[in-house]
Simulated scan of single mutants.
Amino acid sequence: MTADVWLPIPPDEIEGLPDGPAYRFWDGAEDFPADPADCAFYVVPYMRPGEVGTRPLPRMTSVRVVQTLSAGIDHVEPALRHLPAGVRLCNARGVHEASTAELALALILASLRGIPGFVRAQDRGEWRGGFRPALADRNVLIVGYGSIGAAIEDRLAAFEVARVARVARSARATVRGPVHPLTDLPALLPDADVVVLSTPLTEATRGLVNAGFLARMKDGALLVNVARGPVVDTKALLAELESGRLTAALDVTDPEPLPAGHPLWHAPGVLISPHVGGPTSAFLPRAKRLLVNQLHRFVNQEPLANVILTTGTTSI
């Protein structure tokens, strides 16, 4: 049986791939490039609907590695039940940190400094000045302190923020300071001027930002979501936005894509970008480096990087 590797990037565009496997290009097209049963290493197409990327999985009876090109795995995880035991699922840690952290800072600055209002005023030919909040001297709370959360803090360092608090699933120490567990959120939220969501979507984080979470945020605080839409209860957020008590900058929404006519489009104090945290010019070179590294490890039977779970040993 051929040891096929399915790649969503043409293999002749990736320098340094190891010899040995038969490389097949598949970016989610209707026709498969080969028999899925021969695939040993499957790279899920990037920026395709979940049902597209998971379509070949039930037929991949010989697959040993499923590699995403996204930081999150929630779009793939439900289909893993079709796979045999021992398949390793790896994410794209190291690929999206720069782009997503850039966007998080852009959303924070644009929201605080009123950039959307300036653009609308420019369209009308109006000169509208006045005082706006600065990021300097603000308290920032990062909810989801993995590699993307840390990259966001790296970029905050230049903006003279007063304090950064960090929250993750469990407590730990870092060179920048302590990381608090999720259970500390009620005590941390009232002090935060800016709350940044960069947590993965799990059963523990789905609906994490509910009415109670939002009620604990201080008046005038900004919520920034570069994580996943379902981390936030949209109805509860809308109530806070419409009251004028909170503002928000959202790269992800629930539902997504946000349909025309949805009240979130026109809610006061909200800035929406269409899930563009990852797809920038920084993506492709980092994605290629990740794939070359992982495939060398795979061919040489070395431990893989970024293993999130192994089927048959972790609850899916």
Rank of each mutant, 00 (worst) to 15 (best):
Y46H: 13
V226D: 02
L185R: 08
A3V: 11
F118H: 12
T205I: 03
G278A: 13
V292N: 12
R24C: 04
D233V: 09
D123F: 06
F283Q: 05
I316T: 03
V224L: 10
N306K: 09
P21L: 10
V179M: 05
R286G: 09
F283N: 02
A106H: 12
V95G: 07
V95Y: 01
N306A: 08
G177A: 12
E102D: 15
P133L: 03
Y145T: 05
R155N: 08
G212N: 05
L304N: 10
E126W: 11
D27G: 13
D191R: 14
D74E: 15
I308F: 08
T280S: 14
P11K: 06
A121R: 01
G269C: 13
S147H: 14
V143S: 11
T2I: 14
A157V: 13
G229Y: 07
P45T: 06
I108F: 10
L7D: 09
A22C: 14
A287R: 07
D184S: 14
P49H: 09
V231A: 04
V231E: 03
S70I: 01
A305L: 15
P45F: 05
M1W: 10
K218D: 05
L246I: 05
D137E: 15
Y145P: 05
P178T: 02
L69F: 02
L189W: 10
S315P: 01
E13T: 14
V252A: 07
N293Q: 15
G146C: 09
L238E: 10
G53H: 09
A211E: 11
Y46W: 14
V161I: 14
V76W: 00
S111P: 02
G20M: 07
A192C: 08
T314A: 13
C90F: 08
P36M: 06
P116E: 02
L214I: 00
G229N: 10
W26Q: 09
A34S: 15
R113S: 08
M217Q: 07
E242C: 04
K218C: 06
G86D: 01
Q67S: 04
V87P: 00
P45Q: 00
P10L: 11
P178L: 10
M217D: 00
A92E: 04
P56E: 03
I142A: 12
V95S: 05
A37D: 03
P56M: 03
M47F: 15
L304P: 01
D191M: 13
T174S: 11
M1C: 00
A305F: 15
R216W: 09
D123Y: 00
V95K: 06
I9Y: 09
A239S: 14
L135I: 11
P18N: 11
G125P: 11
E203T: 12
